[in-house]
Amino acid sequence: MYNNLGAQPGVPRPPTNPQPNPFGNSFYGAGSGLIRGGLGAYGEKILGSSSEYVQSNISRYFSDPQYYFQVNDQYVRNKLKVVLLPFLHRGHWTRITEPVGGRLSYKPPIYDINAPDLYIPFMAFGTYVVLAGLSLGLQRKFSPEALNWLFVKGLFGWFLQVSLLKVTLLSLGSGEAPLLDILAYAGYAFTGMCLAVLGRIIWRYSYYFLMPWACLCMGIFLVKTMKRVLFAEVRSYDSSKHHYLLLFIALAQFPLFTWLGNISVNWLF
Rank of each mutant, 00 (worst) to 15 (best):
G126K: 04
T127F: 15
T127I: 14
V129L: 15
V129R: 06
V129G: 04
V130I: 15
V130D: 05
L134P: 04
S135E: 15
S135P: 04
S135A: 12
L138R: 09
L138K: 07
Q139M: 11
Q139F: 05
K141P: 12
F142W: 15
P144H: 05
P144K: 02
E145R: 01
E145G: 00
E145Q: 03
L147N: 00
N148S: 09
W149V: 00
F151Y: 12
F151E: 03
F151G: 03
K153I: 10
G154R: 08
G157S: 06
F159Q: 12
F159W: 14
S163T: 15
S163Y: 14
L164N: 10
L164Y: 11
L165T: 00
L165V: 04
K166V: 14
L169H: 11
L170F: 13
L170T: 13
S171Y: 14
S174F: 10
G175H: 10
G175W: 14
E176H: 13
A177Q: 15
P178M: 06
P178S: 03
P178K: 01
L180I: 08
L180D: 03
L183W: 13
L183T: 14
A186V: 04
A186E: 04
A186Q: 08
A186Y: 04
A186C: 04
Y188R: 04
Y188D: 04
Y188L: 01
A189G: 10
F190S: 00
F190H: 05
I202A: 06
W203T: 08
W203G: 00
R204G: 09
Y205W: 12
S206T: 11
Y207V: 01
Y207H: 03
F209N: 01
L210K: 02
P212D: 07
C215E: 09
C215L: 02
C217G: 02
G219N: 05
F221T: 02
F221W: 09
F221N: 03
V223W: 10
V223N: 02
K224W: 07
M226A: 03
K227A: 07
R228C: 06
V229S: 02
V229Y: 11
L230Q: 05
L230K: 00
L230G: 01
F231L: 11
V234E: 10
V234C: 12
R235G: 11
S239D: 15
S239V: 15
S240N: 13
H242I: 03
Y244M: 13
Y244T: 10
F248R: 01
I249K: 03
I249A: 03
I249W: 09
A250R: 07
A252K: 01
F254N: 00
F254Y: 09
F257I: 12
F257Q: 11
W259F: 11
L260N: 07
G261C: 08
G261K: 04
N262A: 13
N262C: 12
N262E: 12
I263Y: 08
I263D: 07
S264I: 06
S264Y: 06
